[in-house]
Amino acid sequence: MAVTLTDSILKDLHLRMVRIRRFEETAGKMMESGKIPGALHLYVGEEAVASGVMAHLSNDDQITSTHRGHGHLIAKGGEFSPMMAELFGKATGYCKGKGGSMHISNMKLGMLGANGIVGGGPPIAMGAAFSNKFRKTKNVACCFFGDGASNEGSFHEAANMAGLYKLPVIFVCENNGYGEYTPQRNHQAIVDVADRAAGYGMPGVIVDGMDVVAVFEAAGEAIARARAGEGPTLLECKTYRFYDHVGVRGMGLTYRTDDELEEWKKKDPIDLFEGRLKEQGILSEAEIQAVHAAVAADIEKAIAFAESSPFPDPSAIEQDVYA
């Protein structure tokens, strides 16, 4: 089922990606200046995946995310202020400061959480898809997970059950070639995670994860299939993270070469797409700059909000444990 790529869809995809990129770069700086505590896994380089998928979803469709979750939440409609406040550990954050980067979530947006457990998402997404079917809605659940996560048993159990029950779930593999510092060739004997779909009775589709339109189109098909009751799809997006596994510069390890990074940076999903938008006369350079400037201004506001927000009161520690 082909969706016509209107100008407004293309502009929307662009905005989603820019919002993610700008937020992540700022978050990285905030972490380096000591304002954000804990671990920060940045999504820079992978923006096309979240944006291309999320453009098809409403707030009633759910997603599960990963430790690298800010991009998913932003693409799902997350607002900068409560996000930044959460990363700062403030009471005004999406999770009242209890979750932080690794557990950022928003139930109203159908964002069932970043996850500190690799492979934590697939069973939950499968359960949400079950719920969508059980409650007779047309909603779908999208599960984002990494190449590394595809080695967890939880993924395989969830995929099997999704295939068996024909659940409206899309397993979106963000294959960035590494699980932490271990290259894919050292953690699995296959090249395409999509191959695993065959074992669970669902189609496995491979797409260029640096091309937001390609992701948008492939996700559109999988999601339409799911909404039509035809069951799950495994959509593998080949992508790359531009920063280190954790933080910006990470541990300074030499597990990947600068050359490799530079090669991938030539495929920067935002640069590529902006070139295309200009070529097709959809956005001018000035209009593109205006998008960036507006997003940057929003982020400034979010930082001010996070900085001026109070920390949670210690009495909050034992609240929210039970309903």
Binding site: P37, G38, G89, K90, C95, G97, K98, G99, G100, M102, H103, F311, P312, P314, A316, I317, E318, V321
Partner: peptide, 14 residues
């Protein structure tokens, strides 16, 4: 306390 470990340093320190 009887709760999961909170993220915020303001809570974790207590």
């Amino acid at each position: 306390p009887f709760s999961p470990v909170p993220f915020s340093p303001a809570l974790e320190k207590h």
